[in-house]
Design a binder for these strands. Sequence first.
RNA 1: GCAGUCGUAGCUCAGUUGGAUAGAGCAUCGGUCUACGGAACCGAGGGUCGCAGGUUCGAAUCCUGCCGACUGCACCA
Length: 609
Amino acid sequence: MPKNLHAEIIADIAAPLNAWLAERTLPDLPAPVALGPPTREGAGDLALPCHPYARLLRLSPQAIATSLAEVALAHPLVSSVEAVQGFLNLRFDWGAIATRAVPWALTDDAALGRSDLWVGRKILVEYCSPNTNKPLHLGHARNMILGATIAALFRAMGADVRRINLINDRGVHICKSMLAYQRWGEGVDPVAIGRKSDHFVGDLYVRFEKAFQAEYAENAPGEDKDVYFNERSELGRATRDLLQAWERGDALVHALWSRLNGWCELGFDATFARLGIGFEQVDRESKTYLLGKDLIAEGLERGVFERDPTGAITFDLERIGLVGKKAVLRSDGTSVYTTQDLGTAVKRLDEHAFDRMVYVVGNEQDHHFHVLFGILRHLRPELVNRLYHLSYGMVELPDGKMKSREGKVVDADQLMDELHEIAFAAAQARNLPGPEVDAAAPLDEAELHRRAEAIAIGGLKFFLLKFGPATTFVFDKERSISIEGESGAYCQYAYARAGSILRKLGTAADFDAPEYDRLTTAQEQDLLSAILLFPGCIIVAATEDKPNILTKAVFDVARAFAAFFNHPDCRVLGAPPGLRRARADLVRAARRVLCAGMELCGMTPIEEM
RNA sequence: GCAGUCGUAGCUCAGUUGGAUAGAGCAUCGGUCUACGGAACCGAGGGUCGCAGGUUCGAAUCCUGCCGACUGCACCA
């Protein structure tokens, strides 16, 4: 049975404080005391503001803090207390804490952030959702890494998680690539020309756009581009013909469509593999886009929807506090985007009886989800509070938004390649023959590439996760993927250096009896503290859908380790036996937590850099 | 116009179910440099938390107004 040691310690210390307060505020103590890490630095290990009880007890906050300090001091894990400005501050007896915490961190899965809080919950996470007309870019990378990480966090909580990729494989966008292939690429094959297959399809899309721009510039400069495309453009006409042929089930068009989609998805799979992204379920819009129509009929009958004079079926947005009406079925009876999303959600509910479904989708669709969830609240009341839009901010470039149509994007594959090169160059430089590297047996390039890949991908993931999901950030390649400071590489480096100590130690301390109560330097306390705090961070990160809390928790452990590692008073190898063993165990514990934290981020820990 | 999100150090960002002297990374400056791996460590400077009110023991956090930025507001997806 995993236990959150920190929470347990706090509860244990808080118990007599609660009792003291309860005794004097009978019958109603508002809530258990909010004993927790102080917000102010240097205020000890736990703090409690006593102001809320002042009115109730008719005592000053300071008087209450003073009394509680006396109560707290009696606890064996508390070494000192103080009452300042109505706050009760207390310090742990770190020797006693270490004696409990190190063995716990070495063996209990709770130390890795695992718990059973969400056992029995079924959660669906939908993310990635690519269009099959161009390769994945940095925006997709942020989406995928957020989705994969949030899914991993849910699993750590014990939930039964199903990850779903909904591929948008039909529509005008893919028809544009299809048309370009028909006209300018027939017979050419990505393998034949050595092009990654999703990029091959993307090239076709760009080719189409260029041709369209030329046509537009020649025939209708100044006219609204969409109007021109829909009403006068020859390429537009041909594209719509393809779409209609597809919807009729035209065999040749479907063959072409399957071929291009196959190439695109093949390419995606390679990118997923490199990024370590996985799914339990892949849905395709070509299979789901007709869903929802019967739901509309049902809703119409029940009065959730109404039919307007043109024959379209609409939802009155005033029902959800907005203005206007939202069409859920066109006047010609065909579906809109919302129709299939309604259908898909209900189908998933029927099939998986989920407790929660999370859509990882950019914040430009906030309004869409507001409306979608609002409609579903009327259609399927049991879905209330089960649906959640994990909205995230766009990634922008120094010169503005990414525009895939204009080719102004950071391609995911290319970015990974570039990051790999940077990491490889650094790995090569530090592994030149020298004191640490045996000149007679230089590392082979394959090993350096393996490390560089772990650092590159890990760095990218850490970078994309460390922002709050809602934050729109500017991606400046030169400065963004830092390999120093708060970065993936920093965490991997801490892990590697910890491993280095243990390698040098070998089995030397195996038979020493650990003296954990001697782990009392400031650096050891800080490291233990970061380790103790880690599980709680995982719970908050999962509960609030904030992976940036995870990266922060990992970084905190790494930073505390770095300080420990560097401090002359904290040497492991030169320490007397009992202390040496205790420190070695502390290093093992830190490594264990770092490893778990990095894996939750989807990073690969490496033994050497 | 309406709605939503946001405005915190020179830069990039944390922190918002109300708690003390608002934090980190980068950059700058200064140290560590006979070392359990320098992709590191220690220290310093740097903030009217957009502006103005309000609520209270206490506000970056809650309320109101204003200024500024972004994104939405299709019978597109």
